[in-house]
Design a protein around this nucleic acid. Structure first.
Length: 376
RNA sequence: GGACAGGUGGGUGAGUGGUUAAUACCAGCAGACUGUAAAUCUGCCGCGCAAUCGCGCUACGAAGGUUCGAAUCCUUCCCUGUCCA
């Protein structure tokens, strides 16, 4: 994997680049749709590639390990072939499930003992085993196992956890070095440290020693105020190597995307566009549009008149609202197509602005919008 | 004509003397959602008013009755379903 920086914003830390992977070139900054169980819920791979032109999506180690299992996926030619997706795939390590499935796991120095949410079976995830599993998937970008903490966490606990994450990154990365072909697979360590700048700094500095092909900032979007997440990126990003891609995990709302880019971030992922789509919430150029609301029952306009996606160029708000009310599957498909298009378009727009040297203007414009409004 | 079984808030359907403005589910309305245990979850959901614990009114087919008190018991009537003629 190779990262090439094409343009740098003269005012902010934003940059535009190209991430060359074994499964295609990714233009950055990039938004990566989340496809936990080898599917981005609600859309087909054809939608993702043709309609949305997503260049990279996520998969999840914990979920795919439990079902259908990494050996089966390996046997069927790897995750790309299994799910018929020939573009890039980044897999999360299961570190987020340490946070989201906290009642079903036990963290030790050795790793994480999960009790399957499907059938209660116990499975030990270690830094090494999660690398092995992700290599069985054939992921383009593997993530090292980390411990994602809830908010708030005491400094003392966060510090201990951060050191564990560093140790895990060391062993996971060593396994990656030993078993992976670096031309085909990259592996990113994850900076933790809760909401403490000193811990973030310490963690970043330790992880940089690994000389990894890219770095992630994790442990955000776990219940903390927005400003805090951005502050953590503020202190962390500058410590990560300039020439390598930086990835903030699990963010954010549309108006926050340029904020992270301005702080030197190249990659982001989030379930918001896909999940909120299914729950009746559309992201539009005019802001939040809760399509399930009664007020749209007779609205003939497209969800977002400024959007060129299949949904907006074909269907009315009234029709989408009807599909939602009726519990029709088509609703989820159409809404997900729109929301993902929205996120991907925002990132493309940001990227263009950086390339044209107009990013500071874009950022100023977004910041001047009233709350709830969204970037064009 | 006869024998059973029933009639409960928008729907289905609990409740069978007080703790019931009435369980639950659905529908409806609103909200949440940030490296997905999520086509999920939460709140509201008779009518007024206060609009924060509050107050008043009307309600369990209809009308009477028993009782301190009835959706719940009794009487009559109306209606529905199934079966037999």
């Amino acid at each position: 994997m190779r990262f090439e920086i094409q343009a740098q914003c003269p005012v902010t830390k934003a940059r535009a680049g190209l991430l060359h992977t074994a499964h295609g070139v990714i233009e950055t900054p990039v938004f990566m749709p989340v496809g936990t169980q080898a599917t981005v819920k609600g859309v087909t791979q054809r939608d993702l590639a043709c309609e949305l032109d997503a260049k990279i999506i996520l998969g999840n180690t914990y979920h795919l390990f439990l079902r259908p299992g990494h050996e089966l996926i390996r046997q069927l030619g790897g995750l790309h072939r299994f799910m018929s997706w020939d573009r890039a795939i980044l897999t999360d390590s299961g570190g987020f499930q340490v946070f989201s499935l906290d009642s079903l796991r036990k963290v030790t120095d050795e790793g994480v003992l999960f009790r399957s949410h499907l059938n209660g079976d116990a499975h030990m995830f270690t830094p090494e085993s999660t690398v092995d599993v992700q290599l069985a998937f054939g992921s383009d970008i593997l993530m090292v196992l980390d411990e994602c903490l809830p908010y708030p966490t005491s400094h003392e606990a966060a510090r201990a956890s951060m050191h564990r994450t560093i140790r895990w990154a060391g062993s996971g990365f060593a396994r990656y070095r030993e078993r992976a072909d670096p031309d085909r697979h990259a592996c990113f360590p994850i900076v933790q440290g809760s909401m403490y700048p000193d811990l973030r700094r310490q963690c970043a500095e330790a992880l940089v020693e690994l000389d990894a092909p890219g770095y992630a900032i994790g442990g955000l979007s776990v219940g903390e105020p927005r400003a805090l997440s951005q502050e953590m990126v503020d202190v962390t990003a500058p410590l990560l190597p300039v020439e390598k891609p930086r990835y903030v995990m699990g963010v954010g709302m549309p108006a926050e995307l340029p904020e992270y880019v301005a702080r030197g971030i190249d990659m982001m992922d989030c379930v918001l566009p896909s999940r909120n789509a299914r729950n009746g919430y559309l992201f539009t150029s005019e802001g939040k549009l809760v399509i399930k609301q009664n007020r749209y029952r007779d609205d003939p306009r497209p969800p977002d008149p400024a959007c060129s996606c299949y949904t907006c160029s074909t269907y009315s708000r009234a029709y989408l609202r009807h599909l939602f009310q009726a519990g029709e599957i088509l609703y989820s498909m159409l809404a997900t197509i729109h929301n993902l298009k929205r996120y991907l378009d925002i990132m493309r727009y940001i990227r263009q602005a950086i390339l044209l040297g107009r990013f500071p203007d874009l950022l100023a414009e977004v910041r001047s919008l009233p709350a709830g409004q969204e970037p064009v």
